[in-house]
C-alpha cells in the first residue's frame, strides 16, 4: 500500500492538472497555482531537513577531526551566524518589526558585503573556464571541430566592431559576406534550427516522462518498495 497510494495520488493529480490546463472555470483553472503554493509551503518545511543535514554532517566532521575539518567550521559559523541574525533580526534598526533586509541591518551587511561579492567571485571564474573550454573545443582536430571553430570565429568577430571594420571594404553586392551579417545569419538560421530541434525533442521527452509517471510505469522516484 505504501507504493500504491502515492501512485494513485500521482495519477489523480496528474489527470486533474492536465484537465485544468484546458478548462476555463474554477476550481480547475486555478489548480496549478494552488498546487504551486502547496509546494512552496512543503519546501519551507523541508528546509529544516536540509539545515539539519548540513549541521549533522559538519558537526560530525569537526568532532571527528576529519580531513579538511576547518572548512566545516567556516561553513557552520557562516550558517549559524546568518540564521541567528536573520531569524531574530539582530542589528536591525527597526527591531523585530522591521524589514528583514532593511538598510543598515546586519543581515543587509552580510548580504551586500559577504554573499554578493562571494557569488560574484564564483560567477567571474566563468570567464577563465570559458577560455579553457573554448581552447579545447575549438582545436581543429576533426571536420566537425573545424566547422565549429569557423562558426565561432565568425560569430566572435561579427559581434565586435573589429569584425565590421575588417569587411567594410566589401562591395554592396557581397554585403551578405560581411562578418556582422554572416554572424546574424548563423544565429538566425542554423543555430535556431538546431535549438528548435532540441526543443521539440525535449518537449516529447517531457510528455513521455510525464506519461510514465502519471501511469505509474516509472516508479524509481518513489524510492522504498513495500
Amino acid at each position: 500500500m505504501r507504493r500504491k497510494i502515492p501512485l494513485i495520488i500521482t495519477f489523480i493529480i496528474g489527470v486533474v492538472l492536465v484537465t485544468g490546463y484546458f478548462v476555463t472555470r474554477g476550481p480547475f483553472n486555478t489548480l496549478y497555482e494552488s498546487f504551486s503554493d502547496y509546494f512552496a509551503i512543503i519546501t519551507v518545511f523541508a528546509f529544516i531537513l536540509g539545515g539539519g543535514s548540513l549541521l549533522k554532517i559538519h558537526l560530525k566532521r569537526v568532532s571527528n577531526r576529519s580531513t579538511d575539518w576547518p572548512y566545516s567550521v567556516v561553513t557552520l559559523a557562516g550558517f549559524l551566524v546568518t540564521l541567528v541574525i536573520g531569524l531574530f533580526k539582530v542589528g536591525n534598526p527597526d527591531g523585530m518589526g522591521g524589514e528583514i533586509l532593511a538598510a543598515g541591518s546586519w543581515l543587509r551587511f552580510l548580504f551586500d558585503g559577504v554573499y554578493n561579492p562571494l557569488s560574484a567571485t564564483m560567477f567571474s571564474l566563468l570567464a577563465f573556464f570559458v577560455a579553457s573550454a573554448s581552447y579545447r573545443a575549438f582545436r581543429a582536430r576533426t571536420k566537425e571541430a573545424t566547422i565549429l571553430l569557423s562558426a565561432a570565429m565568425v560569430i566572435l568577430l561579427g559581434r565586435t566592431p573589429v569584425g565590421a571594420w575588417l569587411t567594410a571594404w566589401m562591395p554592396e553586392i557581397l554585403g551578405f559576406l560581411e562578418l556582422p551579417n554572416l554572424a546574424n545569419w548563423i544565429m538566425a538560421w542554423p543555430n535556431t534550427a538546431g535549438q528548435r530541434a532540441i526543443m521539440i525533442g525535449i518537449a516529447l521527452g517531457v510528455i513521455a516522462t510525464s506519461l510514465r509517471i502519471i501511469l505509474g510505469i516509472e516508479r524509481n522516484y518513489l524510492g522504498r518498495r513495500e
Binding site: 532540441i198 525533442g201 510505469i217 516509472e218
Partner: peptide
C-alpha cells in the same frame, strides 16, 4: 542532449513498457 536525459531511465531499466515509451517518443518525432 535534451530528450536523452528523459530517455536515460527507460534506457537503463531495459523494462519493455519503459522502452516502448521511448519508441513512442521517436514516433512523436
Amino acid at each position: 542532449i535534451g530528450e536523452e536525459l528523459f530517455a536515460a531511465s527507460a534506457y537503463l531499466s531495459k523494462e519493455p513498457r519503459m522502452l516502448g515509451s521511448l519508441k513512442g517518443q521517436d514516433a512523436g518525432k
